[in-house]
């Protein structure tokens, strides 16, 4: 196996949250990401899935050092990122870019499409001539399916799908090694979503990109990922190759999640068995003891409350954090 591009080890991101009264308040730690580890190889796509509040967005941002990391390590090409100075972080970010969920809100409304796409290039390579920047922008616009003639238009003149293409072009212009896609297709209409998913897959092949593909949509993640990490309440539940995870999910949470995804086929959808999760998501301010999923888990026993599950690896290299995954 090639050396990993990115190594995340026991990463924790806790936010201080003021609770209690107005006068006598106190600060509690909101455990958004609580001890997550994974490796990412060059050219690989890791899907990160989970429901709202599971910490998937925080995880993506912490990798980019866009948020203060509480503890743990993020190693980029052998270099430890946490605790680096601003200049060193900036230098590393040339090779790690991000695409956001809301296509219109993540573009500056007062900049033209061309300026938006060129901005990272001007930032990192001020030595490039104006003509060279224009040439590269035009080339990339074509690659992401935008007409280069639209270079002087403003974001509001584009549709949602086109805005997302601009966001993708901005992330690609530096030819990064890693792109973090945070729900890149969730805000798009069904017919446009497929176009953007295919575009990301094409770009990945062309540029040999690695991707962290963060999404709540298990069907899209299945389509695009090589491996998938399932998060719940800031903790990893299961990490496996796509085939292994979707064909034989081991963790009770992954199974429940998959059984809840509607299938666009009336016969299958009405016949499929469903695992119902009881109750609500617990508060990340006060997570359950032991396994965080135990309060809603159909398989929970006394050991789940007493002991936090550690990583266990199946014969197929399938990592599970569960006391009962063999059952």
């Amino acid at each position: 196996m090639t050396a990993p591009l990115l190594q995340v080890k026991d990463l924790k991101v806790h936010f201080p949250v003021r609770t209690g009264g107005v006068v006598i308040g106190r600060y509690q730690a909101l455990r958004a990401v609580d001890g997550v580890s994974f490796d990412l190889a060059p050219g690989e796509t890791l899907g990160i899935v989970g429901e709202s509040g599971c910490g998937k967005t925080t995880l993506g941002r912490a990798v980019l050092q866009l948020l203060p990391v509480t503890s743990g390590a993020v190693t980029w090409l052998g270099q430890e990122m946490t605790g680096l100075g601003a200049a060193a972080v900036k230098a590393a970010r040339e090779h790690m870019q991000i695409v956001f969920q809301d296509p219109l809100a993540s573009l500056d409304p007062r900049m033209t499409a061309g300026d938006i796409i060129a901005e990272p290039l001007r930032n990192y390579h001020p030595e490039l001539s104006r003509a060279e920047v224009t040439r590269r922008v035009g080339e990339l616009m074509e690659q992401v399916g935008l007409l280069p003639a639209m270079v002087n238009r403003y974001p509001h003149e584009f549709s949602g799908g086109q805005c997302q293409r601009i966001g993708i072009a901005r992330a690609m212009i530096l030819k990064p090694k890693l792109v973090i896609c945070d729900e890149p297709v969730s805000a798009l209409d069904v017919s446009v979503r497929a176009q953007v998913v295919n575009l990301l897959k094409d770009l990945q092949k062309t540029f040999g990109l690695a991707m962290l593909f963060i999404s709540h949509d298990l069907a899209v993640v299945r389509h695009i990922s090589d491996r998938v990490l399932v998060l719940y309440l800031g903790k990893a539940m299961e990490l496996a190759t796509r085939e292994s995870l979707y064909q034989a999910p081991r963790h009770p949470y992954t199974r429940a999640l998959m059984s809840a995804v509607p299938i666009p086929d009336p016969v299958k959808e009405r016949a499929k068995p469903r695992i119902i999760l009881a109750g609500d998501l617990p508060s990340p301010l006060d997570p359950p003891s032991g396994c965080v999923f135990r309060t809603r888990c159909p398989k929970a026993t006394a050991v789940c409350a007493a002991k936090e599950p550690v990583r266990e690896t199946s014969a197929h290299g399938h990592d599970v954090w569960c006391h009962h995954w063999r059952e």
Binding site: A194, V197, M258
Partner: peptide, 24 residues
């Protein structure tokens, strides 16, 4: 037909997702 073909499904892994060209 296009909508059905371009909806990613959990129960199968098509190699390439079909698309409807153009914009809404």
């Amino acid at each position: 037909q296009g909508l059905l073909a371009c909806t990613p499904r959990l129960d199968d892994v098509g190699k390439v997702l079909k698309t409807i060209s153009g914009q809404p």
